[in-house]
């Protein structure tokens, strides 16, 4: 079986889809032509197959699968970069993996760990329990539960302010976004932001939230939660990722199966990539390629953001979170927000 394939037809379709001619966009703005992909591993969470695929970034070969118990979704790198945490929701377990090899270091029993986020200062770990309508705030060092915040309903994604004082959590089923004071666990505000909010990114003093039941990203006032404006990206706007150089925000759109590229300063949509299979989470390779999970196509798309072409590496069933262990080679992002892990 071919493990690494290129689709010329897809590339043509993508080129035809692009709303903005490639020539109109300075290539250097999207990515600097980088060196060949550095050696490294990509970790892909197969949520409906209870495993992680470990993929060699250079060859595109899936090297092995790491079994977990039930239903993993997201990952987070520990502040000291010594462990990659993988949340197994139905297994009520967080796995600590060696981010260099994928070797399991230990397991910790934690209730419904759907989404995991460390605070930028490394002191806190926020765990969203999607099924249990709870946001758990742990002391990151001891993993002692500091606060349990009950929030209806389906808390899905989270992101911190750079000072680590506030975490914003999307509440997928009740169309709300909540701001929680981390140290006290106090809910500062909890407001309606639009249909089925998902991915959250604190950026330039505002909170961006993907509105999955809509076709837009909501730009929310971090102080009180009111919507300042909406930026149409595509139906099923889902998750948001700041590029390593801090210049672009990539938004996945689940229903349209596209990835929108926004100028991180103006939030203007520069272009859009058609990536079939329900793109969900993504990460950035050192060579400038974007690795995106395709939830309904059991694979990962590797997208060239300049040409819009992409190729596919098979993964397990319903691949969700993705993380590349090459980030230490990145220069400091210099961005206003902590980099998200998916």
């Amino acid at each position: 079986m071919r493990r690494w394939r290129r689709s010329g037809a897809r590339a043509a379709a993508v080129a035809a889809f692009l709303a903005v001619p490639l020539a109109a966009i300075p290539g250097a703005r999207l990515r600097a032509a980088g060196p060949p992909a550095a050696a490294g591993l990509a970790f892909v969470v197969n949520s409906a197959e209870a495993s992680l695929s470990v993929i060699d970034i250079t060859t595109g070969q899936e090297l092995r699968r790491i079994p977990v118990q039930r239903e993993p979704h997201h990952m987070a790198l520990s502040p000291d970069h010594a462990s990659l945490l993988v949340g197994d929701t139905v297994g009520n377990t967080v796995y600590f993996l060696d981010p260099r090899s994928g070797a399991v270091q230990r397991q910790v029993t934690i209730s419904d760990p759907y989404q995991l986020q460390f605070s930028p200062d490394g002191k806190w770990l926020v765990v969203n329990g999607l099924a249990r309508n709870q946001v758990d705030i742990y002391d990151a060092a001891s993993l002692q539960l500091a606060h349990r915040v009950a929030l209806a309903a389906m808390p899905s994604h989270a992101n911190f302010t750079p000072d680590s004082k506030i975490v914003f959590v999307s509440l997928q089923r009740t169309n709300r976004l909540a701001a929680i004071e981390v140290a006290s666990g106090r809910v500062l505000w909890n407001v309606d932001v639009g249909a089925t909010p998902a991915g959250v990114l604190f950026h330039d003093g505002e909170v961006l939230v993907g509105l999955m039941g809509d076709n837009a990203i909501g730009v929310v006032d971090a102080a009180d939660g009111h919507i300042r404006r909406r930026i149409p990206t595509g139906r099923g706007a889902h998750n948001l990722f700041l590029s390593p150089d801090g210049r672009f925000i990539y938004a996945t759109n689940r229903v349209d199966s596209t990835i929108s590229v926004l100028d991180a300063h103006t939030l203007h949509v520069e272009r859009s990539f058609a990536v079939s299979g329900g793109p969900d989470d993504l990460d950035f390779a050192p060579d400038g390629m974007i690795w995106a999970t395709r939830r309904f196509a059991h694979s990962v798309a590797i997208i060239d953001p300049v040409s819009g072409t992409w190729r596919v590496i098979p993964a397990g069933r319903s691949p969700h979170g993705i993380w590349l262990n090459t980030h230490d080679s990145f220069p400091p992002a210099g961005a206003t927000a902590p980099r998200k892990l998916s």
Binding site: T196, G236, R254, V255, G278, R295, F296, H298
Partner: peptide, 24 residues
């Protein structure tokens, strides 16, 4: 089977859920 289920999800169920406000 997974491929077919993924196709059904992407091309039938997701647009339907989007239309009826059931994306959660």
């Amino acid at each position: 089977f997974d491929t077919l289920a993924g196709w059904i999800e992407e091309h039938l169920l997701l647009p339907l859920l989007y239309a009826i406000g059931g994306m959660a």
